[in-house]
Amino acid sequence: MYLFQRIEEVVLQYNDTRRAIGEFVLKERSNLRRMSMDEVAKSTYTSKATLVRFAKTVGYSGWREFIVAFMDEVVYEEKSRAEIDANFPFKEKDTHQVVANSIAMLQTESISDTMNLLDMTMLDQAMSLLFNSRKITVFCISPYIYLAEVFRRKMLTIGIAIEIAKPLEASLSAQALTDQDCAILISYSGNNEILEPISHIKTLKKRGVSMIGITSVGDNYIKKNVDCILMMSSRERLYSKISNFATEESVHFLLNVLFSCYFKQHYQENIDHKIFSAKEIERQRYSTLNLMKENHQAHE
């Protein structure tokens, strides 16, 4: 998880001086390099000691160490800024054509960014875990649960039934898995161990379940506790944005890659299975339509 995102988590979790400092730091990030500790404390109506406590909250020993790391990230973001802002890809007065072009470009950039982040060793490890699993269960929350459903359906077309752990029943799903199974955990922040799906990692580890984590770039709880990690595009803020355009496209791409690699393992067999299944489905549809037609004629 990027430092920007850790600060956003602090802003969301706390309702004290840490929120005020976090909001100020994010808003004034381009000016912080020119501000002294006294100036920041005065601007946030806090003290130097409070600034130090804030720095420790996000994992640093003191304010100076925090500012150095934060400004490094600001510089990196400025240098690597994509053509489209992932958080606010369009403006209020943009035409519909500009909006459409911006979303198209953002989705393209997200896939490209995800591909650049894709570690082939990790992908090979992920596929090995999936191939050797008796059961595959996906743990995630909205909006990723909808993408997981698309992945589930694609896997079903080649005869592989996977489960999407329902949020209110995910604890039961985690308890039902064994060391012969695999869990896919999808979380952008990957950092709050008391919330789903991260809250199930301890149970999954205890039961020896193989795990694949799909999460953002940087350190977080998932990365510290899951050996196989696939990284999603991480240019979005946690909450300061219009929507999850970039991360949704990134996760969708990664799940498509997992499905495609799984498919190609038994390529011809899966092609044959899909063709046979499609013919069976179409035959059933044709029969149903004929039955409806005959019933209609019988009533005439």
Rank of each mutant, 00 (worst) to 15 (best):
D272H: 11
E282H: 12
V40E: 00
D227W: 05
Y188V: 10
M120G: 04
E109Y: 03
K135T: 12
S110R: 07
L195H: 13
V138F: 02
H252T: 14
K42D: 08
K279S: 09
L156T: 09
A49D: 06
Y188K: 11
N225F: 02
I242N: 06
S234F: 01
K279T: 11
T137Y: 00
D113Y: 01
L204P: 09
E77V: 06
V10N: 01
T108Q: 14
E78R: 15
V150H: 08
R134E: 07
M232R: 03
A69Y: 00
T108L: 15
F151C: 08
E92L: 15
Q284G: 14
S210A: 13
I103W: 02
E109C: 06
N101M: 13
P197D: 01
M232N: 03
N87S: 03
P197L: 07
K241W: 02
V25S: 00
E65Y: 00
F54W: 02
F151R: 07
L258M: 07
S199L: 15
E282M: 12
F54Q: 02
Q297G: 07
G59I: 07
G62R: 01
H296W: 12
K56V: 07
K206H: 15
V52T: 14
L26M: 11
R283N: 12
Y221N: 09
N270P: 15
A161Y: 12
D85W: 04
S102T: 11
N295S: 13
T46D: 05
H200P: 11
V74A: 00
S30C: 10
S36M: 04
L254A: 00
D119G: 03
L238V: 15
D119C: 06
K135P: 09
